[in-house]
Write a protein that binds this DNA or RNA. Structure first.
Lengths: 134, 134
DNA sequence: ACTTCATGTCAAGAAAGGTGACATCAAATT
DNA sequence: AATTTGATGTCACCTTTCTTGACATGAAGT
């Protein structure tokens, strides 16, 4: 949608996303169950979230806090983007991996940037991710 | 919004609207209480609904049936139009009343057109009102 | 006069949302 | 290889909100 492929790269396991969004794994899986979000999966079936996924989760959190129920969120948020469905699960064999930085390195770097700078509460707000894509 | 002043004319008391929308008075007042709709009032404080109000109620009904709660409807539907707030309560003294047809006559006519043609179920659906404004 | 409408309140059922806690097994990381 | 992290599933539970029905009383409309 954006043209920026990084936004759709499936990078984060659920543990990271928990910390980024301050949602419990229970909640995140609950929202997936109700089709508010469709994260990619690794070959081993573990969820991997993209930046877009994380932003969507932040929007969901936002609406929930406004009292909007699941059905309402489905009306408000654009239906689950096919971009998630065809999300790029970047493994070491992918074409992108052949460039300067491996996915592993990218994830490590982002993990540091996103989490380690803020001890204690690391909750992001909507828009906080945008600075990574200026 | 439309330029068609008739869409904002406060014409129908709650009883008519009940039949048009198949909502109970309870429900309609409930939606007003929660600021989903702001009908005009007569001098005697009774609600008077415009065509726009009725259409809005049909949309609300639609969303309710999809399971969207009040908070969600507020997100989905454009916030209550100021057109309702400054809704034209047409009484016999108003300028429009000086034209061919009095408001009383108009209401009688519409009542017949909208209700008497369909015995039993007279529930309208979204868009049904549009034929009055072609 | 008769019908319709307004406001307010009690009640209550139903669903929805959200969580916690386990248990078991598989995947990933180091 | 060992440790951590994640997946699925389930039972249970609580709390809240929604949403509506049903009355009662008094005023407005026709």
């Amino acid at each position: 949608m954006n043209g920026d492929i990084r936004r759709n790269m499936a990078l984060f396991p659920i543990g990271i996303v928990m910390k980024l969004t301050d949602l419990t794994a229970r909640q995140i899986r609950y929202y997936e169950q109700h089709e508010l979000i469709v994260p990619a999966r690794t070959n081993g079936n573990q969820r991997l979230f993209s930046f877009n996924d994380v932003e969507r989760l932040l929007e969901i959190k936002n609406l929930i806090e406004k009292g909007v129920n699941i059905a309402g969120i489905k009306q408000v948020l654009p239906s689950v983007s096919q971009s998630s469905e065809e999300a790029t699960y970047m493994n070491e064999q992918s074409e992108v991996a052949r460039r300067e930085m491996s996915v592993k390195d990218l994830r490590r770097m982002l993990k540091r940037q996103l989490l380690e700078k803020r001890p204690g509460q690391v909750t992001l707000n909507q828009g906080d991710l945008s600075r990574f894509f200026q």
